[in-house]
Write a protein that binds this DNA or RNA. Structure first.
Lengths: 242, 242
DNA sequence: TTCATACTTCGATCGTGATCGAAGCATCTC
DNA sequence: GAGATGCTTCGATCACGATCGAAGTATGAA
Protein backbone atom coordinates (compact mmCIF):
# COMPACT_ATOMS: atom_id res chain seq x y z
CA UNK A 1 0.00 0.00 0.00
CA UNK A 2 1.00 3.61 0.32
CA UNK A 3 1.90 3.66 -3.31
CA UNK A 4 2.33 6.73 -5.42
CA UNK A 5 2.17 10.42 -4.65
CA UNK A 6 0.38 11.98 -1.73
CA UNK A 7 -2.88 13.55 -2.80
CA UNK A 8 -4.19 14.08 0.72
CA UNK A 9 -1.93 17.08 1.26
CA UNK A 10 -3.32 18.90 -1.75
CA UNK A 11 -6.82 17.79 -0.98
CA UNK A 12 -6.67 19.16 2.54
CA UNK A 13 -5.32 22.47 1.25
CA UNK A 14 -8.22 22.79 -1.16
CA UNK A 15 -10.69 21.20 1.21
CA UNK A 16 -11.14 24.22 3.43
CA UNK A 17 -13.90 26.48 2.10
CA UNK A 18 -12.00 29.67 2.86
CA UNK A 19 -8.91 28.46 1.02
CA UNK A 20 -10.99 27.14 -1.86
CA UNK A 21 -12.60 30.55 -2.23
CA UNK A 22 -9.22 32.23 -2.27
CA UNK A 23 -7.85 29.83 -4.86
CA UNK A 24 -10.95 30.28 -7.00
CA UNK A 25 -10.52 34.02 -6.81
CA UNK A 26 -6.87 33.73 -7.79
CA UNK A 27 -7.84 31.61 -10.78
CA UNK A 28 -9.08 34.93 -12.16
CA UNK A 29 -5.43 35.65 -12.85
CA UNK A 30 -5.19 39.00 -11.12
CA UNK A 31 -2.76 39.38 -8.25
CA UNK A 32 -4.74 40.06 -5.10
CA UNK A 33 -3.75 41.39 -1.70
CA UNK A 34 -4.32 39.57 1.56
CA UNK A 35 -7.09 42.01 2.48
CA UNK A 36 -8.91 41.44 -0.80
CA UNK A 37 -8.63 37.70 -0.43
CA UNK A 38 -9.91 37.88 3.13
CA UNK A 39 -12.91 39.77 1.81
CA UNK A 40 -13.75 37.26 -0.89
CA UNK A 41 -13.40 34.41 1.56
CA UNK A 42 -15.48 36.17 4.19
CA UNK A 43 -12.92 35.90 6.97
CA UNK A 44 -10.77 38.29 8.97
CA UNK A 45 -7.33 39.33 7.91
CA UNK A 46 -5.66 37.26 10.60
CA UNK A 47 -7.34 34.06 9.51
CA UNK A 48 -6.60 34.83 5.87
CA UNK A 49 -2.95 35.36 6.68
CA UNK A 50 -2.81 31.95 8.29
CA UNK A 51 -4.43 30.32 5.28
CA UNK A 52 -2.18 32.12 2.84
CA UNK A 53 0.96 30.97 4.57
CA UNK A 54 -0.31 27.41 4.43
CA UNK A 55 -1.08 27.68 0.74
CA UNK A 56 2.35 29.11 0.12
CA UNK A 57 4.04 26.38 2.13
CA UNK A 58 2.12 23.91 -0.01
CA UNK A 59 3.46 25.53 -3.15
CA UNK A 60 0.05 26.50 -4.50
CA UNK A 61 0.50 30.26 -4.38
CA UNK A 62 3.34 32.76 -4.53
CA UNK A 63 3.61 36.24 -3.09
CA UNK A 64 5.30 39.37 -4.25
CA UNK A 65 5.95 42.28 -1.91
CA UNK A 66 5.23 45.71 -3.28
CA UNK A 67 5.43 48.52 -0.79
CA UNK A 68 3.24 47.67 2.14
CA UNK A 69 1.09 45.38 0.02
CA UNK A 70 1.60 41.70 -0.60
CA UNK A 71 0.23 40.51 -3.85
CA UNK A 72 -0.67 36.86 -4.09
CA UNK A 73 -0.98 34.82 -7.28
CA UNK A 74 -1.20 31.17 -8.13
CA UNK A 75 2.27 29.65 -8.08
CA UNK A 76 2.27 28.73 -11.78
CA UNK A 77 0.19 27.51 -14.71
CA UNK A 78 0.03 23.98 -13.34
CA UNK A 79 -1.89 25.08 -10.28
CA UNK A 80 -4.38 26.87 -12.50
CA UNK A 81 -4.85 23.81 -14.68
CA UNK A 82 -5.27 21.58 -11.67
CA UNK A 83 -7.91 23.82 -10.11
CA UNK A 84 -9.76 24.28 -13.38
CA UNK A 85 -9.73 20.49 -13.71
CA UNK A 86 -11.23 20.05 -10.27
CA UNK A 87 -13.87 22.65 -11.12
CA UNK A 88 -14.80 20.70 -14.20
CA UNK A 89 -15.22 17.58 -12.14
CA UNK A 90 -17.20 19.39 -9.47
CA UNK A 91 -19.45 21.17 -11.96
CA UNK A 92 -20.21 17.92 -13.70
CA UNK A 93 -21.22 16.35 -10.42
CA UNK A 94 -23.53 19.23 -9.69
CA UNK A 95 -21.40 20.52 -6.84
CA UNK A 96 -22.29 24.09 -7.56
CA UNK A 97 -22.17 26.60 -4.79
CA UNK A 98 -25.87 26.71 -3.87
CA UNK A 99 -27.54 28.95 -6.42
CA UNK A 100 -25.89 29.35 -9.80
CA UNK A 101 -25.49 33.10 -9.79
CA UNK A 102 -26.71 35.56 -12.37
CA UNK A 103 -23.18 35.89 -13.66
CA UNK A 104 -23.16 32.23 -14.60
CA UNK A 105 -24.07 32.61 -18.31
CA UNK A 106 -21.39 35.26 -18.75
CA UNK A 107 -18.83 32.97 -17.12
CA UNK A 108 -19.78 30.12 -19.39
CA UNK A 109 -19.46 32.31 -22.46
CA UNK A 110 -15.99 33.71 -21.80
CA UNK A 111 -13.86 33.96 -18.71
CA UNK A 112 -10.27 34.16 -17.57
CA UNK A 113 -8.67 30.84 -16.68
CA UNK A 114 -5.64 32.04 -14.73
CA UNK A 115 -4.04 33.74 -17.72
CA UNK A 116 -5.83 32.54 -20.82
CA UNK A 117 -9.31 32.47 -22.37
CA UNK A 118 -11.81 29.84 -21.23
CA UNK A 119 -15.49 29.11 -21.67
CA UNK A 120 -17.41 28.70 -24.92
CA UNK A 121 -15.18 31.22 -26.67
CA UNK A 122 -12.02 29.52 -25.44
CA UNK A 123 -13.13 26.15 -26.75
CA UNK A 124 -14.25 27.65 -30.05
CA UNK A 125 -10.92 29.36 -30.45
CA UNK A 126 -8.94 26.15 -30.04
CA UNK A 127 -11.31 24.27 -32.35
CA UNK A 128 -10.80 26.91 -34.98
CA UNK A 129 -7.03 27.05 -34.56
CA UNK A 130 -6.86 23.31 -35.10
CA UNK A 131 -9.28 23.34 -38.04
CA UNK A 132 -7.29 26.14 -39.68
CA UNK A 133 -4.11 24.20 -39.04
CA UNK A 134 -2.54 26.94 -37.01
CA UNK A 135 -2.01 24.38 -34.32
CA UNK A 136 -1.59 20.69 -34.89
CA UNK A 137 -0.87 17.70 -32.80
CA UNK A 138 -2.46 14.56 -31.54
CA UNK A 139 -3.37 13.62 -28.04
CA UNK A 140 -2.16 16.26 -25.64
CA UNK A 141 0.90 17.20 -27.64
CA UNK A 142 0.14 20.43 -29.45
CA UNK A 143 2.49 22.61 -31.42
CA UNK A 144 2.37 25.56 -33.79
CA UNK A 145 2.60 24.81 -37.51
CA UNK A 146 4.88 26.81 -39.76
CA UNK A 147 1.95 28.64 -41.36
CA UNK A 148 0.42 29.08 -37.92
CA UNK A 149 3.56 30.77 -36.68
CA UNK A 150 3.29 33.23 -39.56
CA UNK A 151 -0.31 34.00 -38.72
CA UNK A 152 0.46 34.61 -35.09
CA UNK A 153 3.37 36.86 -35.96
CA UNK A 154 1.11 38.80 -38.33
CA UNK A 155 -1.25 39.34 -35.42
CA UNK A 156 1.56 41.01 -33.55
CA UNK A 157 2.56 38.17 -31.26
CA UNK A 158 6.25 37.92 -30.48
CA UNK A 159 6.85 34.21 -30.90
CA UNK A 160 10.51 34.48 -30.08
CA UNK A 161 9.60 35.79 -26.65
CA UNK A 162 7.17 32.92 -26.13
CA UNK A 163 9.65 30.21 -27.01
CA UNK A 164 12.39 31.85 -25.00
CA UNK A 165 10.67 31.01 -21.73
CA UNK A 166 10.75 27.48 -20.40
CA UNK A 167 6.96 27.26 -20.37
CA UNK A 168 5.23 25.22 -23.07
CA UNK A 169 3.87 27.39 -25.90
CA UNK A 170 0.72 25.34 -26.45
CA UNK A 171 -1.07 23.35 -23.81
CA UNK A 172 -4.57 22.04 -23.40
CA UNK A 173 -6.65 22.94 -20.38
CA UNK A 174 -9.91 21.20 -19.59
CA UNK A 175 -12.78 23.66 -19.54
CA UNK A 176 -15.18 23.12 -16.64
CA UNK A 177 -18.21 24.61 -18.34
CA UNK A 178 -17.70 23.03 -21.75
CA UNK A 179 -15.96 19.84 -20.67
CA UNK A 180 -13.64 20.17 -23.62
CA UNK A 181 -10.18 21.62 -23.99
CA UNK A 182 -9.21 25.17 -24.63
CA UNK A 183 -5.77 26.62 -25.29
CA UNK A 184 -3.41 27.34 -22.41
CA UNK A 185 0.35 27.83 -22.43
CA UNK A 186 2.24 30.97 -23.28
CA UNK A 187 0.43 31.31 -26.64
CA UNK A 188 -2.94 31.11 -24.92
CA UNK A 189 -1.80 33.83 -22.56
CA UNK A 190 -0.45 35.97 -25.40
CA UNK A 191 -3.73 35.74 -27.32
CA UNK A 192 -5.83 36.84 -24.34
CA UNK A 193 -3.44 39.71 -23.70
CA UNK A 194 -3.82 40.66 -27.34
CA UNK A 195 -7.62 40.85 -27.00
CA UNK A 196 -7.26 43.15 -24.03
CA UNK A 197 -4.60 45.31 -25.67
CA UNK A 198 -6.60 45.76 -28.86
CA UNK A 199 -9.64 46.74 -26.81
CA UNK A 200 -11.65 43.81 -28.14
CA UNK A 201 -12.48 42.57 -24.67
CA UNK A 202 -12.25 43.61 -21.05
CA UNK A 203 -12.64 41.99 -17.68
CA UNK A 204 -15.81 42.42 -15.69
CA UNK A 205 -14.92 44.04 -12.38
CA UNK A 206 -14.56 41.56 -9.52
CA UNK A 207 -15.28 38.60 -11.72
CA UNK A 208 -13.58 36.10 -13.95
CA UNK A 209 -16.06 36.96 -16.71
CA UNK A 210 -14.82 38.58 -19.91
CA UNK A 211 -17.02 40.89 -21.97
CA UNK A 212 -16.26 41.29 -25.65
CA UNK A 213 -16.96 44.61 -27.31
CA UNK A 214 -18.97 44.70 -30.53
CA UNK A 215 -15.86 45.11 -32.65
CA UNK A 216 -14.22 42.45 -30.49
CA UNK A 217 -16.99 39.99 -31.34
CA UNK A 218 -16.55 40.73 -35.04
CA UNK A 219 -12.79 40.41 -35.01
CA UNK A 220 -12.97 37.22 -32.96
CA UNK A 221 -15.42 35.65 -35.41
CA UNK A 222 -13.22 36.70 -38.31
CA UNK A 223 -10.00 35.44 -36.75
CA UNK A 224 -11.39 32.16 -35.48
CA UNK A 225 -14.02 30.91 -37.92
CA UNK A 226 -15.85 27.76 -36.97
CA UNK A 227 -15.29 24.78 -39.26
CA UNK A 228 -18.36 24.44 -41.47
CA UNK A 229 -18.69 20.70 -40.97
CA UNK A 230 -16.68 19.84 -37.89
CA UNK A 231 -15.03 16.49 -38.30
CA UNK A 232 -14.96 16.07 -34.57
CA UNK A 233 -18.72 16.30 -34.15
CA UNK A 234 -18.99 12.64 -33.33
CA UNK A 235 -16.48 12.75 -30.54
CA UNK A 236 -17.89 16.00 -29.25
CA UNK A 237 -21.25 14.34 -28.91
CA UNK A 238 -19.66 11.55 -26.94
CA UNK A 239 -17.93 13.97 -24.66
CA UNK A 240 -21.25 15.63 -23.91
CA UNK A 241 -23.05 12.35 -23.42
CA UNK A 242 -20.41 10.76 -21.28
CA UNK B 1 -17.38 36.19 -5.53
CA UNK B 2 -18.55 32.67 -4.94
CA UNK B 3 -18.34 32.04 -8.62
CA UNK B 4 -18.21 28.69 -10.27
CA UNK B 5 -18.36 25.16 -8.91
CA UNK B 6 -17.51 24.13 -5.38
CA UNK B 7 -14.13 22.48 -5.20
CA UNK B 8 -13.91 22.54 -1.41
CA UNK B 9 -16.29 19.61 -1.09
CA UNK B 10 -14.15 17.37 -3.23
CA UNK B 11 -10.99 18.67 -1.65
CA UNK B 12 -12.19 17.86 1.82
CA UNK B 13 -13.18 14.36 0.74
CA UNK B 14 -9.71 13.74 -0.64
CA UNK B 15 -7.99 15.74 2.08
CA UNK B 16 -8.27 13.13 4.77
CA UNK B 17 -5.31 10.73 4.66
CA UNK B 18 -7.42 7.67 5.33
CA UNK B 19 -9.81 8.50 2.52
CA UNK B 20 -6.96 9.41 0.19
CA UNK B 21 -5.38 6.03 0.84
CA UNK B 22 -8.64 4.26 0.08
CA UNK B 23 -9.15 6.19 -3.13
CA UNK B 24 -5.58 5.50 -4.18
CA UNK B 25 -6.12 1.81 -3.53
CA UNK B 26 -9.33 1.85 -5.56
CA UNK B 27 -7.48 3.50 -8.44
CA UNK B 28 -5.98 0.05 -8.85
CA UNK B 29 -9.28 -0.90 -10.47
CA UNK B 30 -10.07 -3.91 -8.36
CA UNK B 31 -13.25 -3.90 -6.29
CA UNK B 32 -12.28 -4.02 -2.63
CA UNK B 33 -14.24 -4.80 0.50
CA UNK B 34 -14.59 -2.49 3.46
CA UNK B 35 -12.27 -4.69 5.51
CA UNK B 36 -9.57 -4.60 2.85
CA UNK B 37 -9.86 -0.85 2.53
CA UNK B 38 -9.67 -0.44 6.29
CA UNK B 39 -6.45 -2.45 6.19
CA UNK B 40 -4.81 -0.37 3.49
CA UNK B 41 -5.79 2.82 5.26
CA UNK B 42 -4.60 1.57 8.62
CA UNK B 43 -7.84 2.21 10.49
CA UNK B 44 -10.52 0.11 12.12
CA UNK B 45 -13.53 -1.18 10.29
CA UNK B 46 -15.89 1.24 12.01
CA UNK B 47 -13.89 4.27 10.96
CA UNK B 48 -13.56 2.93 7.45
CA UNK B 49 -17.29 2.44 7.22
CA UNK B 50 -17.83 6.05 8.16
CA UNK B 51 -15.36 7.23 5.53
CA UNK B 52 -16.85 5.02 2.86
CA UNK B 53 -20.34 6.33 3.40
CA UNK B 54 -19.01 9.85 3.07
CA UNK B 55 -17.20 9.03 -0.14
CA UNK B 56 -20.34 7.42 -1.50
CA UNK B 57 -22.47 10.40 -0.52
CA UNK B 58 -19.99 12.56 -2.38
CA UNK B 59 -20.37 10.43 -5.46
CA UNK B 60 -16.75 9.35 -5.61
CA UNK B 61 -17.28 5.65 -5.03
CA UNK B 62 -20.01 3.07 -5.59
CA UNK B 63 -20.76 -0.12 -3.76
CA UNK B 64 -22.12 -3.47 -4.85
CA UNK B 65 -23.47 -5.99 -2.39
CA UNK B 66 -22.44 -9.56 -2.94
CA UNK B 67 -23.40 -11.96 -0.23
CA UNK B 68 -22.14 -10.61 3.03
CA UNK B 69 -19.43 -8.62 1.34
CA UNK B 70 -19.69 -5.10 0.04
CA UNK B 71 -17.40 -4.40 -2.83
CA UNK B 72 -16.39 -0.80 -3.37
CA UNK B 73 -15.14 0.72 -6.62
CA UNK B 74 -14.60 4.20 -7.93
CA UNK B 75 -17.90 5.61 -9.12
CA UNK B 76 -16.82 5.93 -12.77
CA UNK B 77 -13.96 6.74 -15.13
CA UNK B 78 -14.13 10.44 -14.35
CA UNK B 79 -13.19 9.88 -10.73
CA UNK B 80 -10.20 7.83 -11.82
CA UNK B 81 -9.06 10.51 -14.24
CA UNK B 82 -9.48 13.21 -11.60
CA UNK B 83 -7.46 11.30 -9.02
CA UNK B 84 -4.75 10.38 -11.51
CA UNK B 85 -4.61 14.06 -12.43
CA UNK B 86 -4.14 15.06 -8.82
CA UNK B 87 -1.44 12.42 -8.44
CA UNK B 88 0.38 13.89 -11.39
CA UNK B 89 0.27 17.31 -9.83
CA UNK B 90 1.35 15.98 -6.45
CA UNK B 91 4.19 13.91 -7.87
CA UNK B 92 5.50 16.85 -9.84
CA UNK B 93 5.57 18.94 -6.67
CA UNK B 94 7.49 16.25 -4.87
CA UNK B 95 4.62 15.40 -2.56
CA UNK B 96 5.57 11.78 -2.42
CA UNK B 97 4.63 9.73 0.56
CA UNK B 98 7.92 9.87 2.48
CA UNK B 99 10.20 7.31 0.91
CA UNK B 100 9.55 6.32 -2.67
CA UNK B 101 9.06 2.60 -2.18
CA UNK B 102 10.96 -0.19 -3.89
CA UNK B 103 7.91 -0.81 -6.06
CA UNK B 104 8.23 2.65 -7.51
CA UNK B 105 10.17 1.72 -10.68
CA UNK B 106 7.68 -1.03 -11.47
CA UNK B 107 4.81 1.42 -11.03
CA UNK B 108 6.43 3.89 -13.36
CA UNK B 109 6.97 1.24 -16.00
CA UNK B 110 3.43 -0.13 -16.15
CA UNK B 111 0.47 0.05 -13.81
CA UNK B 112 -3.28 -0.06 -13.74
CA UNK B 113 -5.00 3.32 -13.89
CA UNK B 114 -8.47 2.38 -12.73
CA UNK B 115 -9.19 0.18 -15.75
CA UNK B 116 -6.55 0.92 -18.34
CA UNK B 117 -2.77 0.84 -18.82
CA UNK B 118 -0.65 3.67 -17.43
CA UNK B 119 3.02 4.42 -16.91
CA UNK B 120 5.78 4.35 -19.49
CA UNK B 121 4.11 1.53 -21.38
CA UNK B 122 0.76 3.33 -21.40
CA UNK B 123 2.27 6.47 -22.85
CA UNK B 124 4.29 4.50 -25.40
CA UNK B 125 1.17 2.65 -26.49
CA UNK B 126 -0.77 5.84 -27.16
CA UNK B 127 2.20 7.39 -28.96
CA UNK B 128 2.43 4.35 -31.18
CA UNK B 129 -1.31 4.20 -31.83
CA UNK B 130 -1.25 7.79 -32.99
CA UNK B 131 1.93 7.37 -35.06
CA UNK B 132 0.43 4.28 -36.74
CA UNK B 133 -2.76 6.23 -37.39
CA UNK B 134 -4.90 3.80 -35.48
CA UNK B 135 -6.14 6.74 -33.49
CA UNK B 136 -6.30 10.27 -34.75
CA UNK B 137 -7.51 13.56 -33.45
CA UNK B 138 -6.29 16.90 -32.32
CA UNK B 139 -6.39 18.39 -28.90
CA UNK B 140 -8.31 16.13 -26.56
CA UNK B 141 -10.70 14.80 -29.18
CA UNK B 142 -9.51 11.34 -30.15
CA UNK B 143 -11.24 8.81 -32.35
CA UNK B 144 -10.50 5.55 -34.08
CA UNK B 145 -9.63 5.69 -37.76
CA UNK B 146 -11.19 3.28 -40.24
CA UNK B 147 -7.96 1.32 -40.60
CA UNK B 148 -7.52 1.47 -36.85
CA UNK B 149 -10.92 -0.09 -36.33
CA UNK B 150 -9.88 -2.98 -38.57
CA UNK B 151 -6.68 -3.50 -36.62
CA UNK B 152 -8.49 -3.56 -33.31
CA UNK B 153 -11.07 -6.00 -34.62
CA UNK B 154 -8.26 -8.23 -35.89
CA UNK B 155 -6.86 -8.24 -32.38
CA UNK B 156 -10.14 -9.65 -31.15
CA UNK B 157 -11.69 -6.52 -29.74
CA UNK B 158 -15.46 -6.24 -30.10
CA UNK B 159 -15.80 -2.65 -31.28
CA UNK B 160 -19.57 -2.88 -31.53
CA UNK B 161 -19.72 -3.59 -27.80
CA UNK B 162 -17.48 -0.63 -27.06
CA UNK B 163 -19.54 1.84 -29.05
CA UNK B 164 -22.78 0.48 -27.67
CA UNK B 165 -22.04 1.87 -24.23
CA UNK B 166 -22.43 5.56 -23.57
CA UNK B 167 -18.80 5.88 -22.48
CA UNK B 168 -16.32 7.49 -24.86
CA UNK B 169 -14.26 4.96 -26.78
CA UNK B 170 -11.05 6.97 -26.70
CA UNK B 171 -10.04 9.40 -24.01
CA UNK B 172 -6.79 10.84 -22.82
CA UNK B 173 -5.69 10.47 -19.23
CA UNK B 174 -2.77 12.41 -17.81
CA UNK B 175 -0.09 10.06 -16.55
CA UNK B 176 1.38 11.13 -13.22
CA UNK B 177 4.75 9.47 -13.69
CA UNK B 178 5.29 10.47 -17.32
CA UNK B 179 3.38 13.76 -17.30
CA UNK B 180 2.00 12.90 -20.71
CA UNK B 181 -1.26 11.32 -21.82
CA UNK B 182 -2.07 7.68 -22.14
CA UNK B 183 -5.19 6.05 -23.53
CA UNK B 184 -8.30 5.74 -21.38
CA UNK B 185 -11.91 5.15 -22.41
CA UNK B 186 -13.53 1.85 -23.28
CA UNK B 187 -10.83 1.06 -25.85
CA UNK B 188 -8.11 1.61 -23.27
CA UNK B 189 -9.93 -0.75 -20.95
CA UNK B 190 -10.44 -3.34 -23.69
CA UNK B 191 -6.75 -3.33 -24.57
CA UNK B 192 -5.62 -3.90 -21.01
CA UNK B 193 -8.17 -6.68 -20.63
CA UNK B 194 -6.76 -8.18 -23.81
CA UNK B 195 -3.23 -8.23 -22.36
CA UNK B 196 -4.47 -10.04 -19.29
CA UNK B 197 -6.61 -12.49 -21.27
CA UNK B 198 -3.78 -13.37 -23.62
CA UNK B 199 -1.48 -13.94 -20.67
CA UNK B 200 0.89 -11.21 -21.79
CA UNK B 201 0.71 -9.42 -18.49
CA UNK B 202 -0.56 -9.89 -14.96
CA UNK B 203 -1.13 -7.74 -11.94
CA UNK B 204 1.32 -7.76 -9.07
CA UNK B 205 -0.53 -8.87 -5.95
CA UNK B 206 -1.66 -5.98 -3.73
CA UNK B 207 -0.25 -3.37 -6.08
CA UNK B 208 -1.19 -1.30 -9.06
CA UNK B 209 1.95 -2.51 -10.81
CA UNK B 210 1.68 -4.66 -13.94
CA UNK B 211 4.32 -7.20 -14.88
CA UNK B 212 4.66 -8.20 -18.51
CA UNK B 213 5.74 -11.74 -19.35
CA UNK B 214 8.59 -12.29 -21.80
CA UNK B 215 6.22 -13.09 -24.64
CA UNK B 216 4.07 -10.19 -23.50
CA UNK B 217 7.01 -7.82 -23.88
CA UNK B 218 7.65 -9.14 -27.39
CA UNK B 219 4.05 -8.92 -28.50
CA UNK B 220 3.70 -5.47 -27.01
CA UNK B 221 6.79 -4.22 -28.86
CA UNK B 222 5.49 -5.77 -32.08
CA UNK B 223 1.98 -4.36 -31.73
CA UNK B 224 3.01 -0.90 -30.65
CA UNK B 225 6.26 0.03 -32.39
CA UNK B 226 7.81 3.33 -31.47
CA UNK B 227 8.02 5.92 -34.24
CA UNK B 228 11.61 5.99 -35.49
CA UNK B 229 11.91 9.77 -35.48
CA UNK B 230 9.11 11.05 -33.30
CA UNK B 231 7.69 14.29 -34.68
CA UNK B 232 6.55 15.25 -31.22
CA UNK B 233 10.00 15.16 -29.70
CA UNK B 234 10.11 18.92 -29.41
CA UNK B 235 6.91 19.19 -27.50
CA UNK B 236 7.81 16.23 -25.36
CA UNK B 237 10.94 18.01 -24.31
CA UNK B 238 8.90 21.04 -23.36
CA UNK B 239 6.53 18.96 -21.31
CA UNK B 240 9.45 17.52 -19.41
CA UNK B 241 11.07 20.86 -18.92
CA UNK B 242 7.95 22.70 -17.86
C1' DT C 1 8.08 62.47 14.33
C1' DT C 2 3.40 60.94 14.41
C1' DC C 3 -0.25 58.60 12.52
C1' DA C 4 -2.36 55.32 9.37
C1' DT C 5 -2.39 51.23 6.62
C1' DA C 6 -1.08 46.36 5.56
C1' DC C 7 0.06 42.42 7.35
C1' DT C 8 1.99 38.81 10.70
C1' DT C 9 2.37 36.46 15.07
C1' DC C 10 0.65 35.01 19.47
C1' DG C 11 -2.73 33.10 22.34
C1' DA C 12 -7.14 31.46 23.53
C1' DT C 13 -11.58 29.58 22.24
C1' DC C 14 -14.41 26.64 20.08
C1' DG C 15 -16.48 23.34 16.77
C1' DT C 16 -16.01 19.81 13.74
C1' DG C 17 -14.63 15.58 12.50
C1' DA C 18 -11.62 11.39 13.04
C1' DT C 19 -11.30 7.61 15.88
C1' DC C 20 -12.68 3.43 18.22
C1' DG C 21 -15.47 0.40 21.69
C1' DA C 22 -19.79 -1.68 22.05
C1' DA C 23 -23.93 -3.08 20.33
C1' DG C 24 -26.97 -4.28 16.48
C1' DC C 25 -28.15 -6.21 11.85
C1' DA C 26 -27.43 -9.18 7.82
C1' DT C 27 -25.59 -13.18 5.65
C1' DC C 28 -23.16 -17.44 5.29
C1' DT C 29 -21.67 -22.07 7.30
C1' DC C 30 -22.43 -26.07 9.81
C1' DG D 1 -31.06 -23.85 15.13
C1' DA D 2 -26.10 -21.97 16.80
C1' DG D 3 -22.03 -19.78 15.66
C1' DA D 4 -19.04 -17.00 12.74
C1' DT D 5 -18.09 -13.31 9.58
C1' DG D 6 -18.86 -8.69 7.40
C1' DC D 7 -20.47 -4.48 8.04
C1' DT D 8 -23.27 -0.46 10.08
C1' DT D 9 -24.90 2.50 13.75
C1' DC D 10 -24.48 4.66 18.16
C1' DG D 11 -22.06 7.09 21.54
C1' DA D 12 -18.13 8.98 23.72
C1' DT D 13 -13.53 10.76 23.49
C1' DC D 14 -10.18 13.49 21.75
C1' DA D 15 -7.21 16.21 18.83
C1' DC D 16 -6.56 19.27 15.30
C1' DG D 17 -7.41 23.26 13.00
C1' DA D 18 -10.34 27.34 11.91
C1' DT D 19 -11.38 31.49 13.92
C1' DC D 20 -10.65 35.98 15.92
C1' DG D 21 -8.88 39.53 19.52
C1' DA D 22 -4.80 41.69 20.80
C1' DA D 23 -0.28 42.89 20.21
C1' DG D 24 3.75 43.42 17.27
C1' DT D 25 6.30 44.66 12.76
C1' DA D 26 6.89 47.01 8.40
C1' DT D 27 5.90 50.51 5.06
C1' DG D 28 3.89 54.81 3.53
C1' DA D 29 1.75 59.47 4.37
C1' DA D 30 1.53 63.91 6.73
Amino acid sequence: MKEGPDIALIGSLIGDPARANMLTALTGGKALTATELAGTAGITLQTASSHLSKLEAGGLIAQRKQGRHRYFTLADDDVGLMIEGLMGFAAYRGFTRHRTGPKDPALRKARVCYNHLAGDYGVRMLDSLIAEEVISGAGDTLHLTASGADKMTALGIDLAALTRSRRPVCRTCLDWSERRSHLAGSLGQALLTLFFDKGWARREPDSRAIRFTDTGEMEFAKLFPLPAQPSIARHHQQAVDA
